[in-house]
């Protein structure tokens, strides 16, 4: 296996970090819906926390994406 095909493989593997991010965002949004269902009057606060949580969970996927892009477009 030469270097470029290894890089392509690595790019594919790096982008698997999206799985974790997807699970994380799913948990965050699910819990936010639960919280809003429990306390609908505090929806504004939950929305802010949801955005932060989703952004933090998403950042792992973004790191993976960046790594894979680095490998693809060296």
């Amino acid at each position: 296996m030469d270097v470029s095909s290894a890089a392509l493989l690595g790019a594919g593997i790096a982008v698997l970090s999206g799985i974790g991010a997807g699970v994380g965002i799913g948990i965050v949004s699910g819990k936010t819906v639960e919280a809003i269902a429990r306390q609908p009057e505090a929806q504004g606060k939950f929305t802010g926390i949801f955005i932060i949580g989703a952004a933090l969970a998403e950042s792992t996927a973004i790191y993976g994406l960046v790594v894979s892009l680095l490998l693809l477009f060296r």
Binding site: A55, E58, S59, I62, Y63, L65, V66, L69
Partner: peptide, 16 residues
Amino acid sequence: TSLALRLFGNMLGGYI
């Protein structure tokens, strides 16, 4: 780093 990479990665990913 996470701020910059998040914005960059999202927009570049969407563009690709």
